[in-house]
Write a protein that binds this DNA or RNA. Structure first.
Lengths: 222, 222
DNA sequence: TTTTTATCGAGAAAATTTTCTCGATATATT
DNA sequence: AATATATCGAGAAAATTTTCTCGATAAAAA
C-alpha cells in the first residue's frame, strides 16, 4: 500500500534465522569463535548459499575464508528480531500448555516476558505458576491497558479463544500468539501468529507417508 | 533422484490444509453442509484460488455454485494425511511440554496415538500421565522394535535430544517430532519435523516490529 | 613473496508458489 | 424456459524463494 515499504524478509528465512541462533549459542558455549555458512549449512542440513542469503537480511557481513564472528552474528540476529528489548506479555489459559510455556523460562532470551497469566477457574486464580501470578480473566482488558501490554499468548481451549482475542484487542494488545486450533478474527493491524501443533503433525505425517511409499515397504498396504 | 517421483504437495499447502480441517469440523458441528472456497478464504483470511489449489491436492472435486460437501472434504483431507489410520507413537521427556502433549488428547484425530512416555527420572518412571504409562528411557529401543513403533516425539531438554533421537532411530523409529531447540542429525530416510516455538515467536516479533514501523508510532525510538 | 584455498556477496537462473484470467457449469431467479 | 449468478478447475502470468555461477578477497601454504 504505502511506498516506503519495509523490505520484508521471507517467512522461511525468519524461521531459519531463529534456528541458526540455537546452533550459534551452542557453538559459542563450546568455545568456537567463527563460523562459515558452509558449517551452518552442514549442521542444519541446508544450503550454504541460502544460509548466506538469510544472514544478509540481518545486515551483518562476513569475511571471505573465515565466515562470520559468532558473537557478532548472534547479536545481529537478536537485534534483527528486536529480542534485546524484552516485551512484557500476558498469557491466557493456565492449563497444560499454558503451564508448559510458563515453565519454559527461556522466552526472555527471545524478547518475551510473560508477566501474568489469566484464567477463569477459581481454583487457579490467585495462585502462581513458575512465579507468574494467575489472575482473573475478567481483569485482562483493564490491566493490559494500564500496563501497556502489547503481546498476548492464547493457550485456552478452542471454544474460548476468539473471546480471549477480542478482550486482548480491547485491552490494546497488538500481537497475539495463538495456540488454539481456530483462526482468530481480529481488526486490521493486529498481528496473529497461529501456532497449531497439528500443522507440524500434518507435515510430519505427510512426509512419513511419502517416505514409506519411496521405501516401497508398505506399497502393498497403501 | 528416482523418476517415479510422487508429486509432492507444497509445505505451505500442507499447513493450510491442516488448518482448514479445524474450520470444517467447527462448521460441520454448526450444521453447515456445503462450503465454497470463497467462504473458507474469508474465514481464514486467505485467497479463494489458493484454497482451491490446496484442496485440489486432496483429490476431491467441488461443484460450481455450491462448492464442496463439508463431510467429503473432511474425509478427503483426513485420508490425504492418512489420519484415518492411527499410528502408535512414543514420547520421550515427561516434563511440562511432554505432559501438555499427553494431556491434549486430540492427536488421535490426527493419526497419532501416544502409547508410552519415557523419562530418566525415577520419580516419574512407573507413574501414569493421562493414562499413558511412563517407562524407563533405557527400554525405549527394545520396546520400539518389539511394538513396531514408527513415530517418536521428543520433548526433552535440548541437551538430551540428540541422544534420544539416536535411540529412537536404533529402535526403528522412522519419523521424529522434535520440540527441543536443536537440529537433530539422523540417517537418510528418517523424517524429522522440528517444532520450535521460538520459530513462531520469530515470525510474530518480526511482524509486530514491522507493524510498529508502519504505524509510525515508535518511529522515533527505532 | 607468490600461489592456493575457502568463503563471501551479488547477480542470474531455476524452481516453486501464489495470484490472475477465463471458460464451463450447477443452481437460483425471472 | 431463458437468464443471471456464484463457483469451480485449468492454464497463464506474476511473484517469491531457492539454487547456481562466478569474481573478489582474506588467510594459509608453498
Amino acid at each position: 500500500m504505502e511506498n516506503h515499504q519495509i523490505r520484508s524478509t521471507p517467512e522461511p528465512s525468519l524461521r531459519r534465522l531463529a534456528r541458526y541462533l540455537d546452533l550459534l549459542h551452542k557453538l559459542q558455549k563450546d568455545g568456537q569463535i567463527n563460523i562459515s555458512s558452509t558449517q551452518i549449512g552442514s549442521e542444519m542440513s541446508s544450503d550454504p548459499t541460502q544460509v548466506r542469503k538469510d544472514i544478509e537480511y540481518t545486515g551483518i557481513i562476513g569475511k571471505p575464508k573465515t565466515g562470520y564472528v559468532i558473537a557478532e552474528l548472534i547479536y545481529a540476529i537478536e537485534t534483527f528480531f528486536n529480542w534485546n528489548n524484552v516485551s512484557d506479555a500476558f498469557l491466557v489459559g493456565a492449563g497444560n500448555l499454558g503451564r508448559a510455556i510458563l515453565g519454559y523460562g527461556h522466552f526472555k532470551k527471545y524478547g518475551l516476558n510473560i508477566v501474568s497469566a489469566f484464567d477463569i477457574s477459581p481454583d487457579l486464580i490467585g495462585t502462581e505458576i513458575y512465579n507468574v501470578p494467575v489472575l482473573d480473566f475478567e481483569k485482562i482488558t483493564n490491566l493490559a491497558q494500564r500496563m501497556k501490554i502489547h503481546i498476548g499468548v492464547i493457550t485456552t481451549p478452542v471454544e474460548c479463544a476468539q473471546e480471549v482475542a477480542d478482550k486482548m484487542v480491547e485491552g490494546g494488545i497488538k500481537a497475539i500468539w495463538n495456540f488454539a486450533p481456530v483462526h482468530l478474527k481480529v481488526p486490521d493491524g493486529i498481528i496473529v501468529e497461529h501456532t497449531h501443533l497439528t500443522q507440524s503433525l500434518a507435515v510430519l505425517t505427510k512426509n512419513l507417508h511419502k517416505q514409506f511409499l519411496l521405501d516401497d515397504k508398505f506399497s502393498g498396504e497403501l
